[in-house]
Design a protein around this nucleic acid. Sequence first.
RNA 1: GGAUGGGUGGCCGAGUGGUCUAAGGCGGCAGUCUUGAAAACUGCUGUGGGCGUUCGCUCACCGGGGGUUCGAAUCCCUCCCCAUCCGCCA
Length: 431
Amino acid sequence: MLEERLFEHMLDRKFILENAELVKRNCLNRGAKVDVDRFVALEEQRKKLQQEVEELNRKANVTSKSIGQAKDPAEREARKEEGRRLREETQKAQAEVDALVEQIAAVQRLIPNLSHPEAPVGGDDTANLELARGKTAVPEFDFEPLDHVELMEKLDLVDFEAGAKVAGHGFYFLKNDAVLLELALQQYAVQTLLREGFTPITTPDLARNEVLEGIGFIPRGPETQIYSVENTDLSLVATAEITLGGMLADTILDAEQLPLKFCGISHCFRTEAGAHGRAARGLYRVHQFTKIEMFAFTLPEESEAMLERLRGLECQLFDGLGVPYRVVDTATGDLGGPAYRKYDLEAWMPGRGEFGEVTSTSNCTDYQARRLNIRYRTKGEKGTRFLHTLNGTAIAISRALIAVLENFQQADGSVVIPEVLRPWVGKEKIG
RNA sequence: GGAUGGGUGGCCGAGUGGUCUAAGGCGGCAGUCUUGAAAACUGCUGUGGGCGUUCGCUCACCGGGGGUUCGAAUCCCUCCCCAUCCGCCA
């Protein structure tokens, strides 16, 4: 019961007002510096002023309506004057409200989603909690394993120099069997999800900034990860999550239609501002890659089960590939703005000798739905409610390539193709 | 890129300055009838907010923003989107 109420008003102004302490604690856990008290004070002031505006509006409406009926010209003039006075007053009060709303929104934008009670509390990724390991054991090599950059260059699978020449550092050309591998990984992911009832979709690679903001990105912020297109309100998408969520913006669905599950294929563009140096070698942190993304719209009471399902699918995909990985429950400080709970899959990367993130799945509850105005209607019930959105990586090509190549490398420098990919690659081995 | 026509409630669609309520239809819900269902008939039926002890009252919303006016779906400006045709093009 309590939880249901929680979802219903999550992070709208009323909820924040009525649960200021809870919101404050959550901001602290997430490392979000937000002045919740100021929000409450401003919002209370706004509510009072808003009521005054509405009362003035009501009076002005009454006056206006009476003019059409007044016969006497002098009487009409007098009422017009009264109307003018009222409208002027309204405008003044409204301007005050607008100014308040702007200040309130500025604070509100900084407030992250609530957090799942079981999500590990902590400031950053060092507080993340390992939940499980994949079916495949971390490989023991009887030789010194190469990292994917060395492997790919030896096998003529990539051209980083040409990428840098054409588009700058962080861009690359895939070549030869790497291209077949990319296509195979796409097929493998899409075919798997098709069997699970997902609707395959290719999406635009650009989106309006409004949509980016609805999903929770800040396109023109100082630390943005987003490429903006000059002289437009468009940005290159950092993930198909943006376009898939935006696809249903301003939509009211019937409850029976839910859940909707999409499997989107798009390119992803990231500036990676300030991320140079650390783990930046090769394909790990690049400005462009292809990604197969899962996205689900669900009823509020079904989103937690859906998150487990998306995580299960990610495990299934990487178990199927034969790539060793661990599942991590993301700590509150590392959740970002929209996620209520997030699991990452981290694949073993022999070249680095450590685990590296390859997928991420989040339950964003109604945080994105509220900002994008995506609701549902239940038969026989009055009104509408915000639905829940979830996203999860099926396969991010660049990082999946690292994991596959590094784990399947042989002593002679060749790479065995995972069995599930062979139908599309058309061979058993590269090199 | 050029031309033209459009954007109205869950959907379709009327509405070019003022009768309190955005016509009508479809869909949906309820009722009558029926053994049950369908059909027919009758009634109800937009979203969000505020106030009020049930009934209710009220504000905003006709693609977005701005303007004219006492009063705008309607007039003006601007932007966006959609359709059709032409041009260009993978």
